[in-house]
Computed example of a mutant assay.
Amino acid sequence: MVWRNVKWPVYHLFVAALALLMLYPVLWMLFSSFKESRTIFVTAESLFPTEWIWSNYVDGWKGTAGRPFMDYITNSLVIVVISTIGAVLSSSLIAFGFARLNFKGRTFWFSLMMLTLMLPHDVVLVPQYIIFTKLGWLNTILPIVVPTFFGMPFFIFLMVQFIRTIPKELDEAATIDGCNKFRLYIQIIMPLIKSSLATAAIFSFYWRWEDLLGPVLYLNSPDKYTVSMALKMFLDSESASNWGAMFAMSIVSLIPVVTVFFIFQKQIVQGMSTSGLKG
């Protein structure tokens, strides 16, 4: 009985310490955004600034390359929204085919799709770049958003597992009522897999928002740069880097991510916890 009373406080203290350890880099970046650039790494052992420099946020919001930081946020939002819509819709449609339709080679194609999860992304960079160059898509968002409309393996797997938990009797009842395969997908399956759709949308949002490699490869004009590229431009190898402004805008760029997480954290947990079940 005594151990039971002691166990929970010890457990919560351990979890709180672990959470603080994981959050420390974010806290360090937050307080560094209020320091002078020249003192950030000199006083790195001190978490709190000796003098609060609020102008870092003002200077950072003015942006770089002659464009305000809001332009980069807008560019990122456009890419994120289009990519998320494409990834969720295409992945759910493909998952429906794998989970509910019987066609020749279904097991083979599903296994091949799963193998792509283990394929390093670096392997396909050069072939993709050559293809997009020949298509004339360089310096546009097309190389970044168009591939998402052909499905994403992780989301397909997630949704296939989720759809398999839905009783097939619903399909049979809908078919008897005259529902074709497309209506079955839209009116029956889609409403029942909202949790997995939300999970896929959230992960797609995270991945596209923080993506740096894709924009660096395909975007050449500052008016098309994303938030990740704008943050990189605060660092200048030939002159003094504005670390204070970069950290300030890094904190600003975290606001959409943190907001989405706290709003949809229930859907994330529900979608991930039920995706491994099979009905």
Rank of each mutant, 00 (worst) to 15 (best):
T39I: 12
V80F: 09
L217Y: 06
F14G: 09
V126W: 09
A201F: 04
P25E: 12
T140E: 06
P25V: 10
K278H: 11
M249F: 03
I268D: 02
S83T: 03
P153W: 05
A87C: 13
T64S: 05
L117R: 09
L125K: 05
F103L: 02
N242D: 14
E51R: 15
G279W: 13
L119N: 13
F182T: 06
T175C: 03
S228Y: 13
T148L: 08
M159H: 00
D59P: 03
S239C: 06
Y206F: 15
V123S: 05
T107F: 03
S221D: 14
V42R: 08
R164I: 02
Y225Q: 11
T84Q: 10
M159D: 01
I166K: 05
F264W: 05
G151T: 01
V58T: 13
D59E: 15
A65N: 11
F108P: 00
S37N: 01
T107R: 09
M113A: 13
P120R: 13
L217M: 14
I85E: 06
Y185I: 09
K278L: 13
F182A: 10
V42H: 10
T165C: 00
A95M: 01
M22I: 14
L217N: 04
S204W: 03
L125A: 11
W109F: 15
L170H: 08
L235F: 10
H121I: 04
I85V: 15
P120W: 07
L18P: 01
I255K: 04
I82Y: 07
L89I: 04
S204P: 03
F182N: 05
T64M: 07
L212K: 07
C179P: 09
F261R: 04
L213G: 02
N242S: 15
G279A: 15
Q265M: 12
P147H: 01
A198Y: 00
K134D: 07
A99H: 00
L27I: 13
Y206P: 05
P167K: 04
P49W: 01
V123K: 03
V260I: 14
L158M: 03
G276P: 00
Y11D: 04
I130W: 08
S46F: 08
F34A: 03
F234G: 02
P256Y: 11
Y129C: 07
T140D: 02
D171V: 05
V80T: 15
A16T: 14
L27V: 15
L217E: 06
Q187P: 04
V78S: 12
I186V: 12
Q161G: 09
G279L: 14
K181G: 03
F203W: 06
I141A: 12
L192W: 01
I189P: 00
W8K: 14
G60R: 09
D59W: 13
W3L: 15
Q128F: 05
P215Y: 13
L217P: 08
R4L: 12
T64Y: 11
S111W: 09
L219P: 02
S250G: 15
F103M: 07
N242M: 08
S55C: 06
P167E: 09
T39W: 11
K181M: 04
F14W: 10
L47F: 12
W3V: 07
I53S: 10
W54H: 06
V81D: 06
N102H: 12
